[in-house]
Structures are given as C-alpha cells and as structure tokens.
Simulated scan of single mutants.
Amino acid sequence: MTSIGITAIGMYVPERVVSNEEFESRMGIEAGWIESRSGIRERRFSAPGEFASHLGVRAVQDMLSRDPEALSGVDLVIYATCTPDAMFPSTAALVAGQVGLTGVGAYDLSTACSGFVYALSMARGMILGGSAGKVLVLGGEVLSKALDQNDRDTAILFGDGCGCAVVGEVPAGYGFQDFVLGADSAGGPALYISNLADQFPDGQFMRDVPTMNGREVFKFAVRVLGDSGTQVLQKSGLQNSDVDWLIPHQANIRIIEAATQRFGIPMEKTVINLDRYGNTSAGTVPLALYEAVNDGRIQDGHELLMVVFGGGLSWAACTMKWWAGAPSLQAAAPQRGEVPA
C-alpha cells in the first residue's frame, strides 16, 4: 500500500501576548492560580480584523519560506476550525485563493479541538481513494473573538493560532499507520458553541458563546485520550514503549498528566506548549508538532502518537512514523550564538 504522511509543515501565532496577569488585573483571578490549575502562563490573541483565514495564510507562508515547493501538486485544502471566517465561503477556500491554489477543492471541517487529526485522516483517505494527489491541511482558531471575555470558566483557557501540513506520499515504512475517530453528541452540552439552533435535540437550551462544564470535560478527556490512544496503538501493532513522542491536545496540564499515566508514557516523551499558547483548539497539535520538529526533538524515524479530544464531544488518535526528508520537516538551523540541541 502507498505510504501517506506529512511532507511539509508551517505555523503562525498572532503577535499579541496575553499573560495571566492581564486576567488578574481585569477579573481578579490570581495569575498563579491560573497556571497551577491549567499549566497556562500566556496565550496569543488575534488583532482586530485578523481571522482564521489570515492565520492560515500566514502559516502557509511560513511553510513556504522553508520549502518553496511545498504546495506543488496540492489539489485539495481542508481547514479544521470551529471559528471560521463565515458559514460560506469556506475558510479553506479563502486560504486557497490567497496562497495560489485557486480552483482546487476546499472545505472546512468542524470537530472542534479534534479537527486537525480528523482532517489528517480525511486527507489520507482522499489520497488513497484517488480523489486527491496532495492535501493541504490546516488547524487553526480565533477563539478570542468568540469567547465571552468575562466568563471565568473559558476566557483564561483559550488562545489563537494556526498550524498547517501538506499530506502526500512518503517513502515506504514512513507516514500514517492508523487512526481512531469518535464522537458522542450526548456530551455536547458539556462543551459547545451554538450557531443557528438555540437548543439541543433533547430540548436543552444553548448559549451563543463557548460554554464548558469543566468537571465533565476533565473526566471525559482523561477517559477518551487513554482509550483512543490505546486503541490506535493496538491497531498499529505497537506498544507504549514504541512511542518516541506523545503529542496530546493542549487543553490542560492536569488532563495531559492523567492521560500519560494511563498510557504509561512519561511526561519527558510528551510535547507540551500550552504554557505559551493556551488551548488553541484545532491548532494545538500542529503547533506542538511544528515546534518539536523545529527544535530537533522529533527526528527521522521517530514514532509519534497524537491524541485529541474536543467539543461535541469528539476524539481522535493517530500513529505515524516521522519522515524528515523535506526542508520544513527538519530542525531549523541554529541562529548565531545558539547551541544546537
């Protein structure tokens, strides 16, 4: 079977850094309490007039700065986001038109924080099914624009950012091995953003801003991260000890710690960056992947396990053997005065 994997990556986060101290001065929530409860020190907020399409374009531009030929042969764009610029046209189409991919297929995918791994699975399937040759996949959000900034349960947790990857053929032995995807709408009231409807099918009323039951989400997240990760390892014929790097959804450090204990994978082999970006929803996994590749932690042949959960409620997991044979898939050259890792 043809091996399908990631052939290029890029990322972008907005310039504005929002520290915990901002929330302390504005809402009276102690900065140290936020960090101790979530692991988050700061996050990025997009500028006025800066939306998901803008973040996506900048992420693709970053990728092209390291690999000018990265988009060659791309004939489909998938943007995983729950904060699209509009209901239509799709944000994927808006990005495609601005990065020289006018006329290719394009659609948005909405499974909240699980979206990027879902989109990788869709891209792989489209290629194996012959409907696409190469696929540009993006995961990004501008949740700061959707939040109620006075909601103490959500305002402190979320940030903005976008990562992207090109999915295509890679050498035999590399690339994606297996995926696990799932959803359970019964848990929807625990974490959601409403749109046109004002109530769930069971009659429960919805608010028009992101709403979360933290206790229920925590229990759900620990369970599905552990279960889906175990399932995808079994499907791939792998053991926990085979995993070089775990890349989890960056929602809360306590959730990640509990999940790693269930896996038996140490925190030392877990990629963490939520301290600097917060929860960027569909953007967390591609941002974490990019940074771990860029700083040299993830290297050619490493076995990766990605596990995510999101609103809906949804979850996804993926195993992949990393191929580092393209320019943007290797550690960045150290700057002058920097000591290589």
Rank of each mutant, 00 (worst) to 15 (best):
V170H: 11
L287I: 07
F218N: 05
G226H: 08
V99K: 09
W323R: 03
G278T: 06
Y174V: 04
H54E: 14
W245A: 09
Q335Y: 12
F179C: 09
P340D: 06
G115M: 10
E257R: 12
G311R: 11
L289D: 03
G175H: 06
D202Q: 10
D295G: 01
S228Q: 07
S65L: 02
G337T: 05
L313I: 03
P89L: 02
N273W: 01
A132Q: 07
V137C: 01
G159W: 05
T7N: 04
Q149A: 09
D242S: 02
E169V: 12
L196S: 11
S114F: 10
G226N: 01
I247W: 04
G130I: 11
P334K: 13
L157F: 06
Y12K: 05
R66V: 01
Q261P: 00
G130V: 08
D62H: 15
Q199E: 14
T2Y: 02
L109Q: 13
C162S: 02
A8M: 04
V170M: 12
D67K: 07
L181C: 05
R16D: 02
G226R: 08
C113R: 02
F220L: 12
L305G: 04
L225V: 14
C113S: 13
A8K: 03
P189M: 09
M267F: 09
Q177V: 10
S25W: 01
M27A: 02
L71S: 07
G32E: 15
G103Y: 09
L128V: 14
A165Y: 02
S3A: 15
C162E: 03
A324W: 02
P266I: 06
D202E: 12
A52S: 15
F158E: 01
A165L: 05
A123V: 08
R66C: 02
D85R: 07
S314V: 08
V57W: 06
V339I: 13
G310Q: 02
L274Y: 04
I265M: 06
T7I: 13
T91A: 10
L136S: 05
S314C: 14
G226M: 08
G283V: 05
Y192D: 12
G310R: 03
L287C: 12
Q330C: 11
P171V: 13
P248I: 08
H302F: 08
A93P: 01
S38W: 06
D67E: 11
Q335H: 10
R207D: 03
I4Q: 00
S228C: 10
D208L: 10
L274K: 02
L191A: 14
